[in-house]
Amino acid sequence: MDPAFEFLCRMGDNTLVLGHRVSEWCGHSPVLEEDIALANTALDLIGQTQLWLGLAAEVEGAGRDADALAMTRDAWDFRNVLLVELPNGDFGRTMMRQCLFDAWHDLVLAELRDSTDDRIAAIADKTSREVAYHLERSRDTVIGLGDGTEESHARMQAALDRLYPYVGELFETDAVDAALAEAGIAPDPGNLRDAYDARITGIMAEATLTIPDSRFAHKGGRDGVRHTEHLGHLLTEMQWLQRAYPGATW
């Protein structure tokens, strides 16, 4: 497996799967302003997917394009972290997941802007501005709801407890990462953990939420070894038309 292809799928599958999840809120959010804002986030993520998976397909050179990668791979070929494929839960859990992801996403993209691969640096440069805004927004929402009412606080604490075991996977390092770090293409994910922890600690303190002590981490998404049961259902929905009518153009 070409490490660059693998890495680009990890980036693109994260944005694809999370964008899909966020788009599920369209028309169902707690208030119109949030509905519109969430749709913007989902739109950004879908656009980023086109860039990452587009480059992945180019690097692969097997005649596939971003749509083919998105719509015709099965679950074991997906390289997103487990965190993003988890169901939305309530609005609080969705925003908590968004914040936990954005805080990492923003750090990675900052590093990738200096990638020795110009194409990757260019995508990182373009998308990092969008992601900085995602983080600003998800951070504010987590803080607002954590510090809001008794009920909103309890729900946000429950969301953090539920999702925190999925954070560790973001910082896993394997042979793919080692090869890319060596070539200066992408950072070693493990090196981002301290900066991430500092961010999350600050946010959760402001949100009056308690970060779980345990550093236990579920994994198996970014290497495709063991996804959650949820991904298959998500793909069933997302890939339905392309699967049911192979060869048609839309």
Binding site: L32, I36, A37, R129, Y133, R137, D140
Partner: peptide, 23 residues
């Protein structure tokens, strides 16, 4: 116009609603 809990959120909502976040 739009609704928001405070001025900060009103600015963010305005970016999302009225500028689609044009910089």
């Amino acid at each position: 116009s739009l609704h928001a809990p405070d001025a900060d959120m009103a600015i963010k909502n305005a970016r999302d609603v009225y500028t689609r976040r044009n910089e």
